[in-house]
Design a protein around this nucleic acid. Structure first.
Length: 203
DNA sequence: AACCAGGAGAGAG
DNA sequence: CTCTCTCATGGT
């Protein structure tokens, strides 16, 4: 294994210990079928949305006894606005209601979560990516956390933390090791990126 | 009270 | 293929 990645893992583990809070369910082993389904639902609701709002939606689904793929499938087919209303707190509720229904339909019409869990990861990943509303990150989140398959999730955080190291190396290897040069250069990059008030055309 | 959280689809070029 | 826009909420 790459030592850089291993070092990062060790450093993060030392700093944070074991994952807690919202991760309690996602990292739980083994999981019940109901728990796997909740993870799938959460993965879709979490798209471009903070976790607190996802929990609000999850709680509404539970209170309405709809926090399962089977219930979502049944409700979504006959009453989409009703499903959308339940997941309102996590935003983009009309889109996500469709996405949720598509995912629920896939699992329900193909023998359920446990059945899908038993097939090869490659096949499942392909099928998940064909679903409307499931892109690479959501597909891999479902594979990893709902189906316990070894699909590493590359999200914005992962990208940010790895790119930082890589880019820092590039800059420091090509510039004189001099804080003044770093200061000037970095300041210019920020100015370039943000632009000046009046020059940009947003709003 | 504007900003932040931080995926994917659709349509344009 | 890459870019930009759209979808929408709740907490700060």
């Amino acid at each position: 294994m790459d030592n850089k990645i291993t070092d990062l893992y060790k450093a993060l583990r030392k700093k944070h210990g074991r994952p807690s809070g919202q991760w309690r369910l996602w990292c739980k082993r083994p999981k019940s079928t109901a728990e796997r389904e909740e993870v799938i639902i959460g993965a879709i609701l979490a798209q471009n949305t903070n976790w607190k709002n996802v929990e609000l939606s999850l709680n509404k689904l539970k209170k309405a006894k709809r926090c399962s793929l089977d219930e979502i499938y049944k409700l979504g087919k006959r009453n989409m606005p009703g499903l959308a209303e339940l997941i309102r707190p996590s935003g983009f509720y009309n889109s996500k209601a469709k996405y949720l229904l598509a995912a629920a339909a896939f699992f329900c019409e193909n023998g359920g979560v446990e059945r899908i869990k038993n097939q090869k990861i490659k096949k499942s990943r392909k099928q998940l990516l064909e679903l409307k509303g499931v892109g690479p990150e959501t597909a891999d989140s479902i594979l990893l956390y709902a189906l316990d398959k070894p699909a590493f999730v590359i999200d914005e955080y992962t990208r940010r933390i790895l790119n930082y190291d890589r880019l820092q190396k590039i800059f420091e290897s090509r510039l004189p090791r001099n804080y003044k040069a770093y200061q000037d250069f970095h300041a210019l990059i920020v100015i370039e990126g943000k632009g000046y008030p009046g020059l940009t055309n947003h709003s």
